[in-house]
Amino acid sequence: MATAAVRCLLTVAVVLAPLLAGADAGRPLSTGFYNKKCPNVQSIVRAAMAQAVTAEPRMGASILRMFFHDCFVNGCDASILLDDTASFTGEKNAGPNANSVRGYEVIDAIKTQVEVSCNATVSCADILALAARDAVNLLGGPTWTVYLGRRDALTASQSAANANLPGPGSSLATLITMFGNKGLSPRDMTALSGAHTVGQARCSTFRDRIYNDANINTTFASLRQQTCPQASGDATLAPIDAQTPEAFDNAYYRNLMSKQGLFHSDQELFNGGSQDALVKKYSGNAAMFAADFAKAMVKMGAISPLTGTQGEVRLNCRNAN
């Protein structure tokens, strides 16, 4: 885990109010949205996430990924949490999510606790935003101000999830375009990709890279091939960052500089292209990475939120009321 000195460097507060106007004009997200209605919501989420991450550090990475996969599909509206119904096929079984996104039970448990304290008040979308922030910080990464006031979607779309989430084989141009479509700059994209400093991935998501890519460290490729054969083992896991897989730090960028990115899309950030210089900076400056990551998370959390009278506050995150 990060040392105390690094933890201090990685603690940042971010204020990006101009970015946070909600979809319902005149009702922006705010830092004090629940101050009167549910003043202890943040402490409830933090305690539950601390318990989950202590039990399984990987869960921190899983909740962070869930938030990303939610926000990139029709905005940060907790649509990823909805089970399929007779009227729609949701996002859980979309290609990028099926047998991959995990941690739904953690969000369910937090929601149950919040409902006991503040019934029908706090949205699942806001719980997920808070949980993602706490997941990063509990793994040694930065903290940031989470703006609140999101409401929950009434429906979800599997086709939108398939269309809007970049895959592990994406090119740099594709990544820049897909993040740009969400209002995120190439710098935001490169900073947010640093989330891959924690977590694990299935063999099926990186097999093509370790057997077919040229821009890869051969020793690293051979190591990964030992547990990811060409014709089997799809579900076998490997750490995305082999150096410090349970610590949120800047080792991810050092991996890229030594051609040890696990995904093709990772290595695209350091492959003679426009992001090489930024990767070099992040690799040697943990505080810069932490600050940029926190800012980008606030921006991502403001993608097309439902606010005001839009959507609803779900009582159960898996189903509309």
Results as ranks from 00 to 15, higher is better:
Arg46Met: 08
Gln200Ile: 10
Ala201Tyr: 14
Gln243Thr: 15
Thr145Trp: 05
Asp134Asn: 06
Val6Lys: 00
Lys281Ser: 09
Leu306Ile: 12
Met49Asp: 13
Val15Lys: 06
Arg224Asn: 09
Pro245Asp: 08
Val198Tyr: 10
Val122Glu: 00
Leu139Ala: 11
Gly75Asp: 10
Pro229Val: 05
Cys8Phe: 03
Cys124Pro: 14
Ser283Ala: 15
Ser265Met: 12
Gly140Asn: 04
Met49Lys: 11
Ala131Lys: 07
Ser62Asn: 11
Thr143Asn: 14
Lys281Thr: 10
Thr190His: 05
Ala21Trp: 03
Thr31Asp: 00
Arg314Asp: 04
Leu262Glu: 12
Ala129Ser: 10
Ser79Cys: 00
Val136Thr: 09
Ala242Gly: 09
Phe68Thr: 00
Tyr34Arg: 04
Ala291Trp: 01
Thr54Ser: 14
Lys37Cys: 11
Gly141Leu: 01
Ser43Leu: 09
Arg254Lys: 15
Thr227Asp: 07
Asp70Pro: 06
Thr219Leu: 07
Pro28Tyr: 11
Met257Gln: 15
Val116Phe: 14
Phe67Trp: 02
Ala109Asn: 07
Gly180Phe: 02
Leu262Tyr: 06
Val12Trp: 06
Arg314Phe: 01
Leu139Gln: 11
Gln243Leu: 03
Ala125Leu: 02
Leu10Tyr: 15
Ser222Arg: 13
Ala78Leu: 09
Gln51Tyr: 07
Asn97Lys: 15
Val313Gly: 00
Ala17Arg: 05
Ala131His: 01
Leu16Asn: 05
Ala251Pro: 06
Val53Tyr: 01
Val136Asp: 02
Asp188Tyr: 01
Tyr104Leu: 14
Val106Arg: 11
Leu81His: 04
Thr11Glu: 08
Pro166His: 14
Arg318Tyr: 09
Leu10Asn: 15
Ile107Lys: 08
Glu246Met: 03
Asn285Cys: 05
Ile216Glu: 07
Arg318His: 12
Gly167Ile: 00
Leu306Lys: 08
Thr219Ser: 13
Ala47Val: 05
Asp83Asn: 10
Ser62Leu: 14
Ile44Ala: 00
Leu165Cys: 08
Asp234His: 03
Ala201Glu: 15
Arg46Lys: 13
Gly180Val: 05
Ser185Thr: 15
Pro57Ile: 11
Val41Pro: 02
Met297Leu: 12
Asn164Leu: 13
Leu154Arg: 09
Ile176Pro: 06
Phe206Val: 12
Asn217Ala: 01
Ala4Met: 05
Leu256Gln: 12
Asp241Ile: 08
Ala50Arg: 12
Arg187Trp: 02
Asn162Val: 07
Cys203Trp: 09
Ala201Asp: 12
Gly167Ser: 02
Gln243Met: 12
Lys281Gly: 01
Gln243Tyr: 09
Met1Gly: 11
Ala129Gln: 10
Met49Cys: 06
Thr307Glu: 01
Thr121Gln: 04
Ser204Leu: 11
Leu20Thr: 02
Phe248Tyr: 08
Ala125His: 03
Cys228Tyr: 08
Phe67Gln: 09
Ser258Asn: 13
Ser62Pro: 00
Asp276Cys: 08
Asn217Lys: 13
Asn97Tyr: 09
Ser274Asp: 12
Phe68Ile: 00
Ser43Ala: 06
Asp126Pro: 10
Gly140Thr: 00
Phe67Pro: 00
Ala17His: 02
Ala61Gly: 05
Gly180Trp: 00
Ala191Ser: 01
